[in-house]
């Protein structure tokens, strides 16, 4: 599988990473998938629910809240996710993956990313170093959940 994204989608993910630095940003990738590739049609930026520690902790508790915050963790509000998904379905689109940033950290999945990952989705990570977006990679969880496999990103020219 590969992930097809237009320049404008990559720009939007990088800009979101820079805007929310030093915190982690997150968002949804909407598009269409066949057996060979996922094609992103729209990138939807969302708020990092770890900004609201009380609500986030209720939904998905952190093991070490003293060392974990929106600086190094993200969580998507499931209700926002549901709304985006519904709106997408009405337009014949599916959720093909998600993106998040790694502030001052490489664009490689962490153990925490792997433990929380779902199969099939593309997980795009953008590294943001001192506020400047750097490497951008995409990953898919291996069938046995033991690791992430890096996925090829096919960059398409922006649509008008």
């Amino acid at each position: 599988m590969s992930l097809k994204l237009a320049d404008q989608h990559l720009d939007s993910i990088r800009a979101h990473g820079a805007r929310d630095y030093p915190n982690e940003c997150c968002g949804i990738l909407l598009g269409k998938a066949d057996d060979n590739a996922k094609q992103v049609v729209e990138v939807v930026p969302l708020a990092n629910l770890r900004h609201d520690p009380k609500r986030a902790q209720e939904l998905l508790p952190l093991a070490e809240p003293a060392r974990e915050s929106e600086r190094n963790r993200f969580l998507i509000d499931p209700l926002e996710q549901l709304k985006v998904e519904k709106h997408a379905r009405a337009r014949g689109l599916d959720v093909v993956g998600y993106y998040h940033s790694h502030p001052d950290h490489p664009a490689r999945p962490s153990t925490y990313d792997r433990v929380h990952a779902w199969p099939w989705y593309s997980y795009v990570i953008v590294a943001v170093a001192r506020g400047v977006p750097k490497a951008l990679t995409s990953w898919v969880l291996a069938e046995d959940r033991s690791r992430f496999k890096e996925e090829e990103i096919l960059q398409l020219p922006s649509s008008a």
Partner: peptide, 17 residues
């Protein structure tokens, strides 16, 4: 009924104290 997967992640642990 909608099954909504929790979407969470992050970089490595660091001291944010």
């Amino acid at each position: 009924i909608s099954i909504v997967p929790s979407i969470a992640g992050g970089s490595h642990l660091r001291c944010i104290c």
